[in-house]
Structure formats: structure tokens, C-alpha cells
Design a protein around this nucleic acid. Structure first.
Length: 186
DNA sequence: CTATGGATTCGCT
DNA sequence: GCGAATCCATAGA
């Protein structure tokens, strides 16, 4: 059932990140429903990951990162764009999976309208949030039962998983914790 | 209290 | 390919 998500997110952060590939991120309702298939994620550990916001401990800003698995952690990058993370592990762990990019499957027109563009609707963390209409008000909400939902892949995920260095950070770049899903259908 | 940096994106050359 | 735009929390004195 819906507990599949929580079970997945209770596994080690790298496995959870890989497992999340192919899942569908859903937001909105009715005609405004938007849905993307996750094609790119990044794993972020807790205190042992220098690149993680949770590295220096729990703060007001990243408090949601320390919630239980299945919570949504939204933060602001460079004060302009929003980035969405799925919290991983037990309460207090501080691990999360950054949802970097996705492929629009539903509500594409709505996304185009929100983004004001026809291309690159959700191929970046900030773009993904804008396309899905995720902002600070969704910080700390549940991905199982909330405005932003994560639902299992319909069938088996086609394609292959590629591991590569994380992007946009200055520390621990040697960890191949960025996972992208190469689809067989392009 | 003031200074600095960040998991980004967009536009121009 | 490179630089600018922009908000807030943390660190230091």
C-alpha cells in the first residue's frame, strides 16, 4: 500500500535514492493535477555528509530534514528557487533525497503555464518545484498524505540507473550519490 | 550587529 | 561559457 514509500525511505539513503527513481511525484487536484516521473535524484546524508544541510546539526532552516521518513523538506536556493527533498531514515537522522529532475506525465499544459516555457519544464531542482507549484508552505508536509504526494511506479522502471558526482556543491564531490534514470524511450 | 555563502536558473555573447 | 539576481541562516566580534 502507501507504506511502500516509507519502507523504501527507511533503507540507507543511497538505496532509497536509487529506489525513488521512477516514482511519480504528484501535486494538485482535479484539472490542476501535475505529475512527473523522477529521473534524477541525489542522496544527502546527515552529520557524516559535509555537503548536507544537516551536517552542522538541526537548525530552523532544515528542521524538516530531521522529520520522519516520508516528510517533504523544501528549502530555498540562492534565495530564489525552491528545492524539494524526500526525508529518509528515522527521526533525527537528517538524511534526505533531493528531487533534482523529472519527466512531465500529467498536467504538462499547467506546468508550461507555470513555468512560462515549453522546454525544460522540470529538468532541474528549482524548475521541478516551480512546475509542481512547491514552495515553502509545503515544507514539512507528508509525501504519503499531503498536498504533494509520491506514488509508486506503475510497472517496472524501464531504463538504467547511472551514478555520478553530485552537482553544485563544493565538498564530498567524490561520492557518487547522484543517480539519474536513463530511459529507453526518449 | 554585520558579513558571508549557498543543493540554482536565466540571459547574453 | 560566464555572470547576475535574491533570501535567510549561521558565524564571528
Amino acid at each position: 500500500m502507501s507504506d511502500g514509500l516509507v519502507e523504501l525511505l527507511c533503507r540507507p539513503v543511497t538505496e532509497a535514492a536509487i529506489g525513488l527513481l521512477g516514482w511519480r511525484l504528484q501535486s494538485g487536484e482535479g484539472s490542476a493535477t501535475t505529475e512527473v516521473v523522477l529521473t534524477e535524484v541525489e542522496a544527502y546524508g546527515g552529520a557524516s555528509d559535509p555537503a548536507s544541510h544537516a551536517y552542522r546539526g538541526k537548525t530552523n532552516r532544515n528542521a524538516s530534514m530531521f522529520l520522519e521518513a516520508g516528510a517533504l523538506y523544501v528549502y530555498r536556493s540562492c534565495g530564489i528557487h525552491w528545492c524539494a527533498n524526500a526525508v529518509v531514515g528515522p527521526v533525527g537522522e537528517g538524511a534526505a533525497v533531493l528531487l533534482r529532475a523529472g519527466k512531465p506525465t500529467k498536467g504538462r499544459t499547467v506546468m508550461e503555464s507555470r513555468r512560462g516555457r515549453q522546454d525544460h519544464l522540470a529538468d532541474g531542482p528549482g524548475k521541478l518545484c516551480q512546475a509542481m507549484s512547491i514552495d515553502g508552505t509545503h515544507d514539512g508536509t507528508s509525501l504519503v498524505d499531503g498536498p504533494i504526494r509520491l506514488v509508486p511506479p506503475d510497472g517496472r522502471a524501464d531504463g538504467f540507473v547511472t551514478a555520478s558526482p553530485r552537482i553544485g556543491i563544493s565538498r564530498a564531490t567524490d561520492r557518487l550519490w547522484r543517480f539519474s534514470l536513463g530511459s529507453t524511450d526518449s
